[in-house]
Design a protein around this nucleic acid. Structure first.
Lengths: 276, 276
DNA sequence: CGGCGGTGGATTATCGATAATCGCGAGTGG
DNA sequence: CCACTCGCGATTATCGATAATCCACCGCCG
């Protein structure tokens, strides 16, 4: 009874792979071989296959027919694009959120900002990125617009806030502070101000990211050998930790149906409660 | 040599299912049983399973663990939400497009509007919806922003323009005319005007749709028997024909890898050429 | 008469094995 | 020396069968 959800092997495999990718065991560009993973985990190919398919839908890996899966390594341009789109979606979100925002919603948001600041102060960029993700997810969630949530969620894995924060030369504390004007605007119930703050947030985030990185984000050397980290530097702490809060990273896209369902009780910030 | 791509059974199954759904053989809410489809097509469960997974990622069907797939029947609220988000994305798209818009881009857009009008005049709402989809896709395409394209495409299956147009009591010609101001604004290179036109387009589309339908869009009677159409009326020409232009509906999400690839040569309006 | 646990049929999830396909490198002919 | 074809090893895609799970029905008990 300790673990409620024992089921759906394929989800567990997905979690495993996600963790492995996030931890850098599969650097961007590296291949993931179904049979190998299957043997490693002591399962058959089928669940591994499905897990990879799901990860593809999340934008984490890329699958080519008859050639298998490899960890996606988005170009710098793509990441910047993602920032732009997110800015739009979240601006829209802010306007919508203002229509339903209760005072009770404000406290948690402030806590998140504070947590972000604390994390930044002690140099824990990883934690900061996680909290950052939660903040934005929260905003979208308040909206109550599930469709917006869907597309937003679909975009986040690409946005990869974490990379930005983990980039050397980025002022983590300043990044955290960028969220305060957003919340302040919400407090004042001023939609235009909120939108401006959000735009500014993404502009600065984007340009500091722009400055910090050269062209290709991951070491997308092409068809590198699989597992082990590439030669030179350690593969730069890859990909968004914005995903996978704590242990369970799955349950993202709405695969659990409409009816109540076990597992993923403490669902991460981006998951809706499923009934309006 | 007549057909370049014979492969990937699972894609063919996906096409088949998509067509079956669009044609109304699987009305919204109906279940799709893996083993049954497999037997029908003379294949094993595996490809069917994968096809269903893909359709889920496209938002066409809904899968619940151990309970199978059923055709999604989005609520009216969800469709309205989708309109809202699309309005935002396409407004953003218009601004971006203006930065790269060449005069050569304008002609095809005008042709599409004309085609839309012609289709509306002769009452061919189906064709009109298709062209409508192409127009909007084109706009996004001009943008050159692939990330925007990705999320936009992700949203379209839900937006289901077709339903709106097919709704009785909607003035199809007026709907077509709504696109002219958008193009005019683009011609004048006036971003604010373009955004206003787009907003207006979606507002009107949304509200006329709002008026035309009662709560649930499809006949989501719950667990109806599978295949055959439900009792009363024919199942109301369901779901977006905006998808599936002509025969081949697949090749949507970027499953065909980065390198050149056969099949889907004349890819539909929403597919990018894959290299910048 | 109504709620409840057991039981069976239907369907999905997983398995292990086989067929299909790809990329690469050796070998051959020009 | 180069272009090209032909296997070969590796890996994915598909298959058929089995285990796991759900749902609805049924009889029993209160």
């Amino acid at each position: 009874m300790t673990q409620i959800t024992r089921d759906v092997l394929s989800d567990k495999v997905e979690d495993h792979l996600l963790q492995a990718i996030l931890s850098g065991r599969y650097p961007p560009g590296s291949r993931i071989v179904e049979s190998r993973v299957a043997r490693e985990l002591g399962v058959s190919q089928a669940p591994v296959r499905e897990a990879l398919r799901d990860l593809e839908a999340l934008g984490i890996v890329e699958i080519t027919a008859f050639r298998g899966a490899s960890v996606r390594s988005p170009s710098k341009a793509e990441l910047l694009e993602a920032y732009g789109v997110r800015a739009e979606l979240e601006s829209y979100g802010a306007r919508l959120a203002l229509a339903r925002l209760s005072d009770a919603d404000l406290e948690p948001l402030q806590s998140l900002i504070d947590a972000m600041r604390r994390a930044a102060t002690r140099g824990d960029t990883h934690e900061e990125a996680l909290v950052d993700g939660e903040f934005h997810a929260r905003l979208i969630e308040i909206t109550g617009n599930r469709t917006l949530g869907r597309v937003w969620r679909y975009l986040v894995p690409v946005a990869r806030t974490y990379i930005t924060l983990a980039a050397p030369g980025v002022d983590a504390i300043a990044a955290a502070d960028l969220h305060q004007p957003i919340l302040d605007a919400l407090r004042m119930r001023d939609p235009d101000l909120a939108v401006a703050a959000i735009r500014r947030h993404f502009e600065i985030a984007g340009s500091s990211f722009d400055a910090a990185f050269s062209e290709s984000v991951g070491s997308a050397t092409g068809s590198q050998g699989d597992g082990a980290s590439v030669d030179g530097h350690p593969p730069m702490e890859p990909i968004a930790h914005v995903l996978a809060r704590g242990g369970r990273g799955g349950a993202w896209h709405g695969r659990g149906g409409p009816s109540g369902e076990a597992g993923s009780r403490a669902r991460d910030a981006t998951g809706w409660k499923r009934d309006t």
